[in-house]
């Protein structure tokens, strides 16, 4: 099963597999999500969920605050797409 992901502020769409991180799917789909570390530490790939479910993988303590998670922010390099999705990138 694949999900459709739209980056609202970049006018881009791509497909995401449920067992892949959002950033990896974006790279494969040629979608513009800026990144540096791909390891959950640099915060370059911050996205905000507008619609849908994006599950942050917290197993290795990525650099994101609980308050940010509550406000819908996720680090795309370590977040699983769990439904069709609309996001906005921070950069």
């Amino acid at each position: 099963m694949t999900y459709r992901v739209r980056i609202a502020n970049k006018d881009a769409e791509f497909e995401a597999e449920p067992d892949e991180y959002l950033l990896d799917s974006a790279i494969i789909g040629g979608a513009p999500i800026a990144f540096v570390c791909r390891g959950g530490t640099c915060r370059t790939c911050l996205v905000r969920v507008v619609e849908g479910t994006l599950e942050q993988d917290l197993s290795f303590e990525p650099a994101i605050q609980p308050s940010e998670l509550g406000a819908g922010w996720r680090l795309a390099c370590c977040a699983y797409v769990r439904s069709d999705l609309v996001v906005e990138t921070k950069r």
Binding site: C37, C42, A63
Partner: peptide
């Protein structure tokens, strides 16, 4: 290298600022 440095900057500036992102 910058990936490391971003981690350092975030971690230690946040430390200095009492964890306020």
């Amino acid at each position: 290298d910058e990936a490391l440095h971003l981690t350092y900057g975030y971690k230690w500036l946040l430390h200095r600022l009492g964890g306020d992102s």
